[in-house]
Design a protein around this nucleic acid. Sequence first.
DNA 1: GACGTAAAGCTGTACAGTACAGATAAATCA
DNA 2: TGATTTATCTGTACTGTACAGCTTTACGTC
Lengths: 152, 152
Amino acid sequence: MQPDDSLRTIEAQVAMLLRLSDRTRRAGARARGEIERSAYLVLGVLAQDGPTSVNGIADALRLDPSTVTRQVLAMEQAGQVVRAADASDGRVTLVRPTEEGLAALERTREVRARLYGEVLDGWSAEDRGDLARLLTRLNADVDTWGRAHGDR
Amino acid sequence: MQPDDSLRTIEAQVAMLLRLSDRTRRAGARARGEIERSAYLVLGVLAQDGPTSVNGIADALRLDPSTVTRQVLAMEQAGQVVRAADASDGRVTLVRPTEEGLAALERTREVRARLYGEVLDGWSAEDRGDLARLLTRLNADVDTWGRAHGDR
DNA sequence: GACGTAAAGCTGTACAGTACAGATAAATCA
DNA sequence: TGATTTATCTGTACTGTACAGCTTTACGTC
């Protein structure tokens, strides 16, 4: 494969993966007991970083703060997080995951890992490991690139 | 990395890639001269398969036909495709890409390949090739899985 | 050939996810 | 203290998508 071919293939395959994953996410996600993608990502941030401000979540996910505001409001309604003013800065809304929220996150992770286990049934451990490694690196580089270029 | 760890990492990284790519797609995509993601995918199908029915496009992209109907109507307005009744089956709307549409597709592919070239700047040819290969295989398996399971 | 059934596509509608602009409240600085 | 900045929330709009129902065309059976 020529260098340029790899780039084109990666680009095309990422676009198609987006399309297909979107499909899979919608189709019966709730029936499988999963939480929404948006809540899933927010809870992932909270599970990793602990209580976080709305802006902090927005930055971690590269989302507009107004979007996160609405997501955490919905998640509070669903009992997945609690919101409280920061004691040392009244402007800040600190978002904390509830036990229920963390349990829902873990449940979703397990369901999805099982799903991927089915999809990647015939894959060697080496290919799985390579894909995990390369995707992680790709995301890190996409994130770095986006921040350096102001997402232009 | 344990087998289960790979699955969890892949799952989490795909979710994050979706998030980040969505961001990059919106931010300044038009400014870079790119066409919309939906048009890009439809034109990709037409470029590969030639004139295709609305249902055919929907199947290739795993979209609802009503969604494709609207996309091709918008693309016709934009001069990227032309629609015509199939001579042998009056129910079928055959969608053909215009020269302009194919040129826009190629332009977008080039812009995006260049973008990926920047993001993957420090990557070895081997890693790029591996990522291209593994993503292609992942998509094929996701697609197969989805069709086998009725996207449940 | 007529009638019932199926297929293709279109229209109405609804919803998730998102951004941008502007409003509000709290903090900080000169 | 007043001006400016920061964090969040509210109003609004748009893309992408699905599902249900409608219309038109085709097909199969008699």
